[in-house]
């Protein structure tokens, strides 16, 4: 399975801290995430992709953008607010 951890605004919108999804391409994963946590639509997830208000990082490191990227079994994705200011 792929684990998606939610922080900040995504967590607030979803009302959940994590979600387990089947591995697959990023766009398939985001569709499954929208179905599992509908509160993420439309501010965090929109038109089958990420909105400008959110970022998704593999294990908190590299930001994912390619909708065709293959997300393997066991991956941990971190979904955060795009506004990083403090």
């Amino acid at each position: 399975m792929v684990t998606v951890e939610l922080y900040g605004l995504p967590r607030l919108r979803a009302g959940a801290e994590r979600c387990e999804l089947a591995p697959g391409r990023l766009r398939e994963l985001l569709a499954a995430l929208a179905a599992a946590l509908p509160g993420l639509v439309p501010d965090i997830l929109r038109d089958g992709g990420l909105s400008e208000h959110a970022l998704l990082a593999v294990d908190g490191r590299d930001l994912l953008t390619d909708p065709e990227a293959q997300i393997p079994d066991g991956a941990v994705l971190v979904l955060i607010s795009a506004q990083a200011g403090g």
């Binding site: 951890e5 922080y7 900040g8 605004l9 607030l12 501010d43 208000h53 990082a57 908190g60 490191r61 971190v78 955060i80 607010s81 506004q83 990083a84 200011g85 403090g86």
Partner: peptide, 23 residues
């Protein structure tokens, strides 16, 4: 709107957990 939601609803203190996860 949504672009200020983080500041209104959570405050910048919500950064800490996120930043910890991003190392």
């Amino acid at each position: 709107g949504v672009s200020t939601d983080k500041y209104r609803r959570l405050g910048t203190a919500s950064n800490l957990e996120t930043f910890d996860r991003l190392r």
